[in-house]
Design a protein around this nucleic acid. Structure first.
Length: 882
RNA sequence: GGGCGAUUAGCUCAGUUGGUUAGAGCGUCACGUUUACACCGUGAAUGUCGGGGGUUCGAGUCCCUCAUCGCCCACCA
C-alpha cells in the first residue's frame, strides 16, 4: 500500500485540479494505441469552431463524452477520444476581417486572396483553438496528440477526394438555381443555414394600373422594393374576377416597363387580393411561376443587398430597407398605395450573419443527396445506429426522406477551394490537382464548412491515405455525443458520408444532449449577457463540481435551466466526499483491504453497506449503458451521501470506538467501500477522486484511477437473506426515536433512555445484538427491550411511535404533554385505519385477487397484516395513556 | 399547416415495462457544534401529479380531448 497523506480540512479544488492534468498527460494516460491488444473504444469530438471559446453547451457535451471515455478505459478498452477544431468558414472569415480592420485598418479585398488566407492562418495560430486548452481545464481525456483541424493537409485531401468522387459519380453539379444569399457574408447559404424568425412587418397594397387605362389590379406585398424585379402579375386561371384580364399588360409603377398578367394556380383567390406580383429573380415560388409562364428573371440586387442598375436611378446603390421606404413613399405620391396592414410574418435570417437573407438566382455548386440518403436512412431504421432519445430518429427520417440538393459553394476565401478549373473555351476540369497547361483558372468559391465536417469521423483518423491502423482499431466509432440542433448539419451528413466513402456507419450510438438555458428558460447568448463563462464557474466551484452538477441536472432530451447556484450541488458533494475520506484517515492508516473483499466476520451494518454498494454499482452501470447520465449521477449521490455518510459512517462509529479487532474490521470495510466509490465516481469527478485515491493510499504514485477496474457489482458478496430489510428496520426505529426526541424539542446532545417493544423473538434477537449501535445512533443513555408495551402505570407517561419491528417509546414522565400525545397517537391510528380499510377493500375485490399478479396480492396481504399489527400497538399505547 | 416535447411541493426537477401511503435538492420552520463535513447534522411542514373524459381490479404512468408554454419542419404573396 502507498502511504496515505493527510487531508486538509476543506476541499480546495483549484490546486488539485491544476495538479492532475499534467500528471495524466505526462503518463500518456489518454493515448489511444491502435496496436493495443485491448478492444477499441472511440469517440470523435464534435469539433468546436476554431474561433470559439468554451460555453456551458461544450461543458455538458464534453463532460458526457469524458464520462463515457473514462468509464470505457476503466472497463478495459483501448480508448481513443479524437479531438480537434473546425475551420468554420463564415464565422472565422468574419472574425478575422473584423480583427484586421481593428488592428491594421485593412480590408479583405485590399489584401487579396492569398495574403488574406495567410492572415487567417496567422490569426488561427495566435488566437485560435483557445477552446482546446479550455477543455483540458474541464478534465477532458482526449488523445491530445491526435488533435486535428478541418483545414489540415490530410483532412483537406479527404475533402478533395470526396468532391472529385461525387463529381465523377454525377452527384455534384454546377447550376443556376434559386439559393439563399447572406448579404453580410456575401455568400450563398444552404437551406439549413437559414433561420426563420417571426418579426413585425407590414403588408403593402399597391395598385398596378392596367396598360390600357381600363383600371388597375391591387397586389399585396411585404417586400415593396422587389417590385423592380417584377416581370408579371399572376391571377388564378379560374378566378372569375380576373380571368378575363389574363394576357393583358399592366404598367409597373415607378418604371417604364409593362408586364403581363398571367394565369397560374400559384395565385390563390382566397388570399390577399387574389393578384400576386411575380418576382422570379427573388422568390422561390415566383421562380417556379416564371418557369411555367416563361417569364424573364431580373436580378435587382447587388451582393450586399443594395439595389442594382436594374432599378430606377434614384434607387441604385440604396440599401434594401431604405429602398423599401422610398418605394412606398413614391407609390403613395403616385396615388398607388391603397393601404398598409401591420402583420407578423416569418422572415429568413442568416444563421451566422443574423441579417435577413435574400433568395436570388445564382450560379452555385450543388450536391444531389437522394442516393446518399438511402443507406443512411436504412442504417437508422434497422437499428445499426441508435438515437438516444429515440424520438430524434423521427426528425431524422423526416428530413432525410425529403432531402434537397445541398448548396455547397460559398463565396468566401477561407475554406477548401473547390477543385474545379475553367478554361477560355468554357470547359470545366474537376480533379484533386490542377490540370496541365496554363489556360486554366481555378474556381473562386470554397466549400461549405460542413463539407469537411461530414468526413470528420474518418478524416480525423487519416483517411484516405493514412490511418490504416486507426481505422482498423477505432472506426466505426462507438458513441457520438452532440446537440440536436446539428442533426441535419452534421449527424445526418456524417452518416451519409460514412456509408458512401467507407462503406461503414461512422458510429453506433448518438446521444443528443439537452440544450442549456438560463433560469428564465432563455437561450444562452452573448448579447443577452446570460451566458456564464465556464472558466469563472470552474474557478469558483471547481471543474468536478461543474461536471457533476451538470450531469446531475441534465435530463434526457429536455432543456436544462441552468444557474451558477446549481454548481453548489457538485461542490457540496465533493466536500462531503472529501470529508468522508478525512474521517476515515482520522481513525488509522488505510488498510490493505481496500482492494480485496474482507474475509473477517462482518457486522450487519457492514453487510448492509456492501449490499447497497453492490446494488448501486449495478445501477450506475445500467444507467450509463442506457445513456441516462443524470440517473447515474443521482444513484451516486444517494449512495455516497445517504447510504454511506448518513447511515453507514455513523453506524461504524461504534466499532471504531470499540478499538481492537472491531475497529480494524470497520476500517477495512470503510476502505473497501470508499475505494470503490472513488472508482465509481471517477468518470464524473476525475480530479478529486484521483486526489483522494492517492492521498488515501489506494493508488500508488504513477498509477491512475483510469486504469483501475470500474466497479460493476461485488464479486463474492457475503450475502445474508433479508439483510437490507433487517438493518432498515433498525434505522426505522432510530428515525422514530429521533422523531420523538424532536417532538419534545430535546437537544440531540442530551442522553435519553428509550424503551423498544419488539414484535417477535427474531426482532428481539437482532435488536438486542444491535443495542450499542442503536444507543449510539439515538444518543441514548440506555435502551430497554421487551415484548410488552412500555408500562405507563409503573413508570409514568411516555411518547411512542409504532414501527415495523414494534414500538419505540421515550419515557418522559415529567415532560410529557398527555393531551398532545393522545392526539398524536390518534392521528397515527386514524391514518393506519385508513390504509387498512383501503387494503381490505382491495383484497375483498374478487377481480383484484383474480387478475393482479400473485406477488402484488401477496404483498398486499402482508402489508395489511403489518398495518393491523401497527394499529394494535398504537391502540395499546393509547389505552395505556388514558 | 404538419411534427415533437413540456405541464408533479414555493422554486428546479426525478418518477424505466400501470401495482400498495408520489420522491429528491434548494428554499421555509424548529432544534443542534457528541470523533469527518455549517459546502454540516437531526426533525418537521407543503402536492385534487394542467382541465375533462375513457380503458383497467388498479392510472402521475396507457388512450381520447381541451388548455397553456416551448422547439423543429413547411413555398405561402
Amino acid at each position: 500500500m502507498a502511504k496515505q497523506q493527510p487531508l486538509p480540512r476543506a476541499y480546495e479544488a483549484a490546486d488539485v485540479e491544476k495538479k492532475w492534468f499534467p500528471e495524466w498527460e505526462k503518463s500518456n494516460c489518454f493515448h489511444g494505441d491502435p496496436k493495443s491488444a485491448k478492444p477499441g473504444y472511440s469517440i470523435v469530438i464534435p469539433p468546436p469552431n476554431v474561433t470559439g471559446i468554451l460555453t456551458l453547451g461544450h461543458v455538458l457535451n464534453n463532460t458526457l463524452q469524458d464520462i463515457l471515455c473514462r468509464r470505457a478505459r476503466m472497463k478495459g478498452f483501448e480508448v481513443c477520444w479524437f479531438p480537434g477544431t473546425d475551420h468554420a468558414g463564415i464565422a472565422t472569415e468574419a472574425r478575422v476581417v473584423k480583427f484586421l480592420k481593428e488592428t491594421e485598418n485593412v480590408t479583405r479585398d485590399e489584401l487579396g486572396r492569398e495574403e488574406f488566407i495567410n492572415r487567417v492562418w496567422k490569426w488561427k495560430h495566435e488566437f485560435g483553438g483557445k477552446i482546446i486548452r479550455q477543455l483540458r481545464t474541464l478534465g477532458c481525456s482526449c488523445d491530445w496528440e491526435r488533435e486535428r483541424f478541418t483545414m489540415d493537409e490530410g483532412l483537406s485531401k479527404a475533402v478533395l477526394k470526396v468532391f472529385v468522387q461525387l463529381y465523377n459519380k454525377g452527384y455534384i453539379y454546377r447550376g443556376q438555381r434559386m439559393i439563399n444569399w447572406c448579404p453580410a457574408a456575401k455568400s450563398a447559404l444552404s437551406d439549413e443555414e437559414v433561420i426563420y424568425k417571426d418579426v413585425a412587418g407590414k403588408f403593402y397594397y399597391f395598385r398596378y394600373p392596367l396598360a390600357d387605362g381600363s383600371g388597375h389590379l391591387t397586389v399585396a406585398t411585404t417586400r415593396p422594393e422587389t417590385m423592380f424585379g417584377d416581370t408579371a402579375v399572376a391571377v388564378h386561371p379560374e378566378d372569375p374576377r380576373f380571368k378575363h384580364l389574363i394576357g393583358k399588360m399592366v404598367k409597373l409603377p415607378l418604371t417604364d416597363r409593362e408586364i403581363p398578367i398571367v394565369g397560374d394556380q400559384h395565385a390563390d383567390p382566397t388570399k390577399g387580393t387574389g393578384c400576386v406580383k411575380i418576382t422570379p429573380g427573388h422568390d422561390p415560388n415566383d421562380f417556379e411561376v416564371g418557369k411555367r409562364c416563361n417569364l424573364e428573371v431580373i436580378n435587382m440586387m447587388n451582393p450586399d443587398a443594395t439595389l442594382n442598375s436594374n432599378c430606377p436611378a434614384e434607387f441604385v446603390g440604396m440599401d434594401r430597407f431604405a429602398a423599401r421606404d422610398l418605394c412606398v413613399k413614391r407609390m403613395e405620391e403616385a396615388g398607388l398605395l391603397e393601404k398598409i396592414e401591420e402583420i407578423t410574418h416569418a422572415v429568413g435570417f442568416s444563421e451566422r450573419g443574423d441579417v435577413p437573407i435574400e433568395t436570388l438566382v445564382s450560379s452555385q455548386w450543388f450536391c444531389k443527396m437522394g442516393e446518399l440518403a438511402k443507406p443512411a436512412i436504412e442504417a437508422v431504421r434497422n437499428g445499426d445506429i441508435k438515437f438516444y432519445p429515440e424520438r430524434w430518429s423521427k426528425t431524422y427520417f423526416h428530413w432525410m426522406e425529403n432531402i434537397q440538393d445541398w448548396c455547397i459553394s460559398r463565396q468566401l476565401w477561407w475554406g477548401h477551394r473547390i477543385p474545379a478549373w475553367y478554361n477560355e473555351k468554357g470547359e470545366v476540369y474537376v480533379g484533386e490537382t490542377a490540370p496541365e497547361g496554363d489556360n486554366w483558372t481555378q474556381e473562386n468559391d470554397v466549400l461549405d464548412t460542413w463539407f469537411s465536417s461530414w468526413l470528420w469521423p474518418f478524416s480525423i483518423m487519416g483517411w484516405p491515405d493514412g490511418g490504416k491502423e486507426e481505422m482498423e482499431k477505432f472506426y466505426t466509432t462507438n458513441d457520438l455525443v452532440t446537440g440536436p440542433d446539428i442533426i441535419f448539419f452534421w449527424v445526418a451528413r456524417m452518416i451519409m458520408a460514412g456509408c458512401e466513402f467507407t462503406g461503414k456507419i461512422p458510429f453506433h450510438n448518438v446521444y443528443f444532449t439537452s440544450i442549456i438555458r438560463d433560469e428564465l428558460g432563455r437561450k444562452l447568448s452573448k448579447s443577452l449577457g446570460n451566458s456564464p463563462d465556464p472558466l469563472d464557474v470552474i474557478a469558483e466551484y471547481g471543474a468536478d463540481a461543474l461536471r457533476f452538477s451538470i450531469a446531475y441536472i441534465a435530463p434526457i432530451g429536455m432543456d436544462i435551466k441552468y444557474s451558477n447556484e446549481k454548481c453548489e450541488i457538485g461542490r457540496n458533494f465533493a466536500n462531503k466526499l472529501w470529508n468522508a475520506c478525512r474521517f476515515r484517515q482520522m481513525q488509522s492508516d488505510v488498510s490493505d483491504y481496500a482492494r480485496t473483499l474482507i474475509s473477517a466476520e462482518l457486522s450487519s451494518d457492514e453487510k448492509w453497506m456492501l449490499a447497497k454498494l453492490d446494488a448501486a454499482e449495478k445501477l450506475v452501470e445500467s444507467e450509463l449503458e442506457a445513456f441516462r447520465f443524470h440517473a447515474a449521477a443521482h444513484a451516486l449521490y444517494d449512495l455516497v451521501w445517504s447510504d454511506f455518510c448518513d447511515w453507514f459512517v455513523e453506524a461504524e462509529k461504534v466499532p471504531l470506538r470499540a478499538g481492537g479487532a472491531e475497529k480494524e474490521r470497520a476500517c477495512a470495510v470503510l476502505d473497501f467501500v470508499l475505494f470503490r466509490i472513488l472508482k465509481l465516481l471517477h468518470p464524473f469527478m476525475p480530479f478529486i477522486t484521483e486526489e483522494l485515491a492517492h492521498r488515501m493510499g489506494f493508488v500508488e504514485d504513477g498509477q491512475f484511477l483510469d486504469f483501475e477496474e470500474f466497479p460493476m457489482g461485488i464479486a463474492g458478496l457475503p450475502s445474508e437473506d433479508g439483510i437490507i430489510a433487517k438493518v432498515d428496520a433498525k434505522f426505522e426505529a432510530v428515525k422514530a426515536g429521533r422523531f420523538l426526541r424532536s417532538s419534545y424539542n430535546i437537544a440531540d446532545g442530551k442522553k435519553l433512555k428509550f424503551h423498544i417493544k419488539l414484535n417477535d423473538s427474531a426482532a428481539m434477537e437482532f435488536f438486542t445484538a444491535e443495542k450499542s449501535s442503536l444507543m449510539s445512533l439515538l444518543n441514548a443513555e440506555d435502551i430497554e427491550f421487551s415484548f410488552d408495551a412500555f408500562d405507563v402505570k409503573a413508570n409514568g407517561a411516555a411518547a411512542s411511535q409504532t414501527v415495523a419491528a414494534g414500538v419505540v417509546s421515550l419515557p418522559l414522565a415529567d415532560l410529557i404533554d398527555l393531551d398532545a400525545e393522545v392526539k398524536r397517537l390518534e392521528k397515527q391510528l386514524a391514518e393506519l385505519k385508513k390504509w387498512i380499510a383501503g387494503n381490505e377493500a382491495r383484497l375483498a375485490n374478487e377481480k383484484f385477487v383474480a387478475s393482479a399478479p400473485e406477488k402484488v396480492v401477496a404483498d398486499t396481504r402482508s402489508k395489511l397484516e403489518e398495518l393491523k399489527a401497527k394499529a394494535a400497538h398504537t391502540e395499546e399505547q393509547l389505552a395505556a395513556l388514558k
